[in-house]
């Protein structure tokens, strides 16, 4: 029983981590008033960019250097998602294109981009299976803290509890913790700093922010790009850690959309998104733990995170608490008044 719970929590956390990256990034973006529906595409591009970087590094050396094995895919993933975010920024902020159309186009583009390069790499290695395995790099990414192993097979109860705790919460690769840290930093930044205040003002009422001397364009660009890069890490985590370095086309699934749903679920608060992401992760894998869940029922169970989001949306709308509403100018381009 202990083991079952431990395993369930572990899997929920593993499943929730890409969502946490995605929704933290999207929250920062949305706080600037940009509704970036390109997040699934950006996460996809982040993932494949990391794979490309990692692939060429792994091909060129016999023994991987742990630092480089982490840094090269990481930098590539950040660069890839930055590029995607810049496309979005240029279109919606500079050219003031419709945000929904741009975002959806970017998602389609991002998935295509990932599958194209994924397919190319698969061809390059002449593999029998339609996937690439970056096992050496994934091993570095999955390196866990040493405690988890030390305590195995203890006799006394306190030690067993400690072991259980370590296994459940401390047995992950560094990116799982990074996701939590990033979300916490984002929460503090948004709530407690002047920069966060200015960013929120831009998303709420850009005309007021502009009149107060805040550079609206700059804030929107930075928030969207940084948000996109954080989301891109979600894609990287998914390949390097969750799937053990195996990239297969379309493997990422609907996690990007779940991340956007999670933003609503967390009512635009990154700290809420931490627990929300693990809850979503748990709901996502719940079908494995329900006895007799047949093939017809599994898709219904997989829908649970979306259902929960709709319920939260209804609840929040009914309560009408202003603080839980989306940023007031979300999805709107800012046109300065005619001069």
């Amino acid at each position: 029983m202990f083991d079952l719970i431990s395993q369930f929590i572990q899997r929920a956390i593993l499943q929730g981590t890409p969502l946490l990256f995605g929704s933290t990034g999207e929250i920062i973006t949305e706080k600037s008033g940009n509704l970036n529906l390109g997040i699934p595409g950006i996460m996809y591009m982040g993932g494949i960019s990391g794979v490309i970087g990692g692939f060429f590094y792994q091909q060129s050396v016999r023994i991987v250097n742990p630092v480089l094995a982490i840094l090269i895919p990481l930098v590539c993933a950040l660069a890839g998602s930055l590029l995607a975010s810049l496309i979005y920024c240029f279109l919606t902020i500079t050219l003031k294109a419709n945000q929904n159309v741009t975002g959806l186009a970017l998602t389609t583009f991002g998935v295509g981009f990932g599958n194209f390069f994924g397919g190319s790499l698969i061809k390059l290695v002449d593999s029998d299976v339609p996937s690439i395995a970056l096992t050496k790099i994934a091993k570095v990414y999955k390196t866990t803290l040493p405690f988890a192993q030390w305590l195995e097979d203890s006799d006394s109860l306190p030690l067993q509890i400690l072991e259980w705790f370590c296994k459940t919460f401390l047995s992950y690769g560094f990116m799982v913790y990074l996701a939590v840290v990033v979300a916490l930093i984002a929460a503090v930044l948004l709530k407690k700093t002047r920069m966060g205040l200015h960013l929120r003002a831009v998303g709420e009422n850009p005309a007021t922010a502009d009149a107060a001397g805040i550079n609206v364009t700059k804030y929107k660009y930075f928030a969207t790009c940084i948000g996109g890069m954080i989301a891109g890490l979600g894609g990287l985590y998914y390949v390097m850690d969750y799937t053990n370095g195996v990239w297969s086309n379309n493997g990422f699934g609907d996690r990007g959309w779940l991340a956007i749903a999670l933003v609503i679920f967390a009512t635009w608060k990154p700290n809420f998104a931490i627990l929300g992401s693990y809850l979503f992760g748990a709901l996502y894998i719940l079908f494995n733990y329900i006895e007799g869940a047949s093939m017809e029922i599994i898709p219904v169970l997989k829908m649970l995170p979306y259902l929960v989001t709709i319920l939260v949306l209804i609840f929040v709308s009914m309560r009408k608490k202003r603080e839980n509403q989306p940023p007031a100018s979300l999805g709107l381009s800012y046109f300065r008044e005619e001069r």
Binding site: H198, A201, E204, N205, T208, A209, A211, A212, I214, A328
Partner: peptide
């Protein structure tokens, strides 16, 4: 020119 969901103080120091 005020941000509705901010407090008076937050609006005053904006920018």
């Amino acid at each position: 020119k005020l941000v509705d969901i901010f407090t008076a103080a937050e609006n005053i120091v904006l920018g």
